[in-house]
Design a protein around this nucleic acid. Structure first.
Length: 418
DNA sequence: TCTGGGGTCCTAGGACCC
DNA sequence: TCTGGGGTCCTAGGACCC
């Protein structure tokens, strides 16, 4: 049995944790740079506010309905996520954190203790609410994809009230028949359109297709999804947990930049993020891509990327940053109003089995990096940085509606009056 | 005044090699 | 009469997720 536990519109719920006055109000949260709406709380959902619409297009509508707007406060969300995951981890013997607000659970050693999955799901919900004030949905299923489907039912379909279980043929059919095909994990809007032409509308319709045929028609992913919907497990626990094959850091700028130094400092910052993620995963990269672009919404779209190969795989921030300085003269073009840039590690290998070079030309300083990570983990991500990142950041994100840093800044810690 | 997220993986097609 | 393989690497673009 698998479970998927995730928060109800996590970012919006997170905003309500330390600001209880918001709990009865419609709240939406915007992406970086206040670009799009990325989280809509259940109250706001009733106003038919769509996700991933540009904010400026919805601005008037939100104002008209007195919707509370917040910029993404990732420092806060990361802390609340950690608290939430810790509580959940007590209820299983194997947890995989799949995204900031979702985790898959396995109960191998717990089975004898659980005689009622329904009651157990509610137990998890109550504990998370009691300890973190975050509402979660719990879905149980015999495959990861069915657990995802049950989770969808728990939160979106009427009558489930936060917990749903797919463990029998009847419960499987009941839930899948009520789900749109595009609500299935792995089926997006594009595939949804094509499936509709084939008269496949619900998750149950899809489950009844021949997996092999559909695999040939679309992709292996679709084939696996169909099998999983039929209770045939294709994604093993290890596969779910598999190390990432690519690691990217990209961002658009708060305002356009046109000078070379700013672009250099932004790219260096992306290097530090990518290198940090690599080290956390225990990976090294042999190859990175460095890119910069103007806005695709403007005329004269400029986009350029360079591949940089390292002689020896690395996860050293300084080595990655050096690659930026080499590539930059070819990437930067004066007159271009840069809108976005990024760095991606695209050929990863395990740090455990590092291939060294006969002449030992590696410039990695693993101990320095370990120290670097330790200090930044303890005192905040910006405590130590490369000089080339610069301290003044003209390209910083727009976050006009930011809530206080309740958990990560002394002066923002909530005060309780007795 | 101007404004449009961020991350990961897969596939198809071309180029090249033996 | 018609016919010619199989593997790897690279890249761009598509698709999905939250």
């Amino acid at each position: 049995m698998f479970a998927l536990v995730d928060a109800v519109s996590f970012y919006a719920s997170a905003e309500k944790v330390f600001d209880p006055a918001l709990r009865t109000k419609p709240v939406v949260v915007l992406t970086n740079n206040d670009g799009c709406i990325c989280a809509v709380c259940p109250i706001a959902r009733k106003l038919n506010i769509p996700k991933f619409q540009p904010y400026f297009k919805m601005k008037d509508y939100l104002a008209k309905h007195n919707v509370v707007i917040r910029s993404s406060n990732y420092e806060l969300y990361a802390d609340l996520s950690e608290n939430m995951m810790n509580v959940i981890s007590r209820y299983c013997d194997n947890q995989y954190v799949y995204s900031i607000d979702e985790s898959f659970l396995q109960f191998t050693g717990f089975k004898s203790l659980i005689n009622d999955w329904h009651e157990y799901g509610h137990k998890i919900r109550r504990a998370v609410w009691r300890e973190t004030k975050l509402p979660v949905g719990v879905g149980f299923g015999t495959t990861p994809t069915l657990a995802k489907a049950a989770n969808h039912a728990a939160k979106k379909l009427t009558g489930y009230n936060g917990v749903a279980i797919i463990d029998t043929e009847a419960s499987r059919i009941e839930i899948l028949a009520k789900m749109k095909v595009t609500d299935v994990w792995g089926i997006g809007s594009r595939l949804g359109k094509k499936l509709k032409l084939m008269n496949i509308n619900t998750a149950f319709d899809l489950a009844n297709c021949n997996a092999r045929d559909m695999g040939r028609l679309f992709s292996v992913l679709v084939e696996r999804t169909i099998s999983e919907l039929n209770g045939i497990q294709c994604l093993s626990w290890d596969e779910i947990k598999q190390a990432k094959k690519e690691i990217f850091s990209t961002r658009s700028f708060g305002k356009r930049i046109e000078n070379r130094d700013s672009l250099a400092s932004a790219l260096t910052t992306h290097c530090t993020i990518v290198a940090r993620k690599l080290r956390r995963q225990g990976s090294l990269t042999k190859r990175i891509v460095i890119f910069a672009a103007s806005s695709p919404h403007e005329d004269h779209y400029y986009k350029k990327s360079f591949i940089y190969d390292f002689p020896v795989a690395t996860s050293d921030t300084c080595v990655l940053a050096h690659a930026v300085s080499i590539v930059l003269p070819n990437l930067f073009k004066s007159g271009v109003r840069f809108y976005r840039c990024g760095v991606g590690a695209i050929e990863l290998e395990s740090a455990e089995f590092k291939q060294t070079d006969m002449f030992n030309i590696s410039e990695d300083k693993p101990q320095l990096m370990a120290c670097f990570d330790q200090i930044n983990r303890r005192f905040g991500q910006d405590t130590l940085k490369l000089a080339s990142e610069k301290s003044t950041v003209p390209w910083q994100m727009k976050r006009h509606f930011l809530s206080p840093h309740f958990t990560s800044r002394w002066q923002d810690i909530p005060k309780i009056r007795c």
